[in-house]
Design a protein around this nucleic acid. Structure first.
Lengths: 148, 148
DNA sequence: CTACATGCAAATTGTTTGCAGTGTT
DNA sequence: AACACTGCAAACAATTTGCATGTAG
């Protein structure tokens, strides 16, 4: 985790961005909650809890910057807030989300679309560079509760 | 097209909703642009162009109503506006979108996920009721232009 | 030092809501 | 007459921006 942090610091440096305490704190929160799909507001509050003072606008600006640098990715689950996800190398960016319509929990599953993409590219003469996939439904524990 | 219109009118009636000129005009715009994935604002302007007076809030309320009635579907392409799509019977609601990152054009392709969904349900104990899929990339004509 | 970054508050954007007035049944 | 429906404007929530000040390099 620290190595990842250092690597990003170096990347910021190389591209002539300053490494401010706010940026570092934001990155740290992101790294410590890699699985959480935090929103800007949530990141903002987590950074503030760590005593680090920061403004919401700065969080947004930092997240934009990290998106530009391809360090994180902006996600949209249709709930009205943008969420952000780390692009770690073991986790390149192709995986899918299962969203429970009952309890709102979110699961990640492996990518299943590779061969499908090939077919789409061939059939529709369309060069695919990314995809966004969410499955909506009911998770195991909600099914168990409801018997539904 | 008129038959579809009449059918919807009847449905509204059956469910005790009034068929106001505003609702009719909104529906007509939706029907006349079935392929367009219009936003609320776009629908609003198209209705006004047809001389029919309407308020933006009414458009939103009508779209909400039509969503509740499963006549249309609210879509999210991550561009910050909700878009709406007709649910015609030949077009039930499971299909995917190809979004060109260059020119922004949008293509629809057939559903390809049925067997994949079965696998996900089995492997993850998750009851899928819907999915949202978009492929991002470059369309044929942009590829041709750029040579990219 | 000096350009880039920040904080704050005001501005924007998309959407929702309250309410008084209107129109269908 | 009752009640759903409308328009308008105000309210909202998420995000962006302008600007005076602060600070990393």
């Amino acid at each position: 985790m620290q190595e990842r942090m250092d690597q990003i610091k170096k990347q910021l440096h190389t591209e002539n961005f300053k490494l401010t305490p706010q940026r570092e704190a934001t990155l740290r929160v992101l790294l410590e909650n890699e699985e959480a799909h935090l929103s800007a507001e949530e990141i903002f509050m987590l950074v503030k809890q760590k005593a680090s003072d920061i403004g919401l606008a700065t969080v947004y600006r930092t997240l934009d910057l990290l998106c530009d640098l391809k360090i994180i990715e902006k996600l949209n689950f249709g709930d009205g807030v943008a969420r952000y996800e780390f692009r770690s190398e073991d986790h390149p960016h192709h995986h899918h989300h299962l969203i429970c319509l009952k309890c709102g929990s979110l699961f990640e599953i492996e990518d299943l679309l590779d061969d499908l993409e090939e077919r789409v590219e061939r059939d529709h003469k369309f060069k695919i560079v990314d995809h966004r996939v969410s499955f909506l439904g009911y998770c195991f524990s909600c099914l168990a509760k409801e018997g539904n």
